[in-house]
Nucleic acid binder design. Sequence first.
DNA 1: GTGACTCAAAAATCCACAACAGGCA
DNA 2: CTTGCCTGTTGTGGATTTTTGAGTC
Length: 408
Amino acid sequence: MGYACDFCGEQRSMVYCRSDAACLCLSCDRNVHSANALSKRHSRTLLCERCNSQPATVRCAEEKISLCHNCDWIGHGASTSGSSHKRQTVNCYSGCPSAAELSSIWSSVLELPSADDTTCEKEMGLMSITENSLKKTSWVGSESDMPLGGGMVKIQKTNFLVGSSSSLPEHKSTSQSLGLQITLPMNPPSSKVCYHPAKGSPLLDNLYEDFNIDEVDLTLENYEELFGIILNSSEDFLENGGINSLFATKETSAADSNCQGAVLAEGSSAQIVNPQPACSAASADSMMSSKTDPILRFTPRQAHSNLSFSGLTGENNTGDYQDCGASSIILMGEPPWCTPGPENSLPSASRSDAVMRYKEKKKTRKFEKTVRYASRKARADIRKRVKGRFVKAGDAYDYDPLSQTWSY
DNA sequence: GTGACTCAAAAATCCACAACAGGCA
DNA sequence: CTTGCCTGTTGTGGATTTTTGAGTC
């Protein structure tokens, strides 16, 4: 992929659509994604201005450039001079935002070129704005669904990040680059709520408020149900209340990322080969899991938190799934962003620490079960059994839940 | 450092049957 | 289009079995 729009081949590409795995100019982006309801839901973001092939995840304020995870790592690694650059998360969006809306979405991240800069931007400026104007202050900079023309537009919180990429919680940026749409579990998140450092309030509060559950394409009874890999790997996700681990980009512990890095490094030797940065969260844990559990299992009876990956629906499966790297984890080797270099070799101490933390987390992981059919449960609760198994009505039994007695 | 072994914990399995979903007349 | 019937699938819990992981030698 290069500078040219994958669709028209003429204009400079500015937007990356994960679902289509395509780099598009703003004009084509709007055209393509206004085709139908499904395409409107494709999650897009700015294109990395350095490699021009990956979705940007951060915007470097100093360099005034949008960077993908890999380029960010290379450019802002801990050992590089740019490690102290102030960076801001780049928003994803869906729907068919107009030029004005797009500029609003990204206004806090970058200054869109003037209408005269490029033909593409001219086209952008010429886009008709038929949608109702928005109260930008009501949604810009917050994670919410915005009713824009052609449907909802999802954007995410923009947060400044300072430091090396290692401080980026990969699983958190993952969500952004994946455009994940999450159904929050009805149960309150675990106590490990990520607190908003500025407000001192649980970020999840906002998330709960802002999430649009209706947008969910696929609801899993359990985050482990979908793929052994992704789900196994997403323990952090649920464990931390699901969302905060994905979106709370402010609260970033270096240990977390170290853990993932460590895991990545550990798992990469055999099975991981090219997980996209976008899914390092899933990748990381899944790698850890796959290291000891080569057969990725589907566990039908496990937990019942609700999680959905829009990227795994038919609509989005191509791009998002690829981004997720679930398959890549197994098929490929060294992560592309893990370029051989000193900055990528984690200190063994922190690495082992991270692994230990991971294992502790795994130990404490809980699967909460929810009963989908209370009537069935009620019946099961009173059914007679033999050695735990249901028996036919009238047959001899050794346990009667009603009387709490055993027949022998 | 490595393999064999033990033990505990976790996960999978099994059962019957009402509820449910979908197709068809 | 609605209704009723039929057929196949799903989900439910406790005990048991199997698998996994950690620790020790």
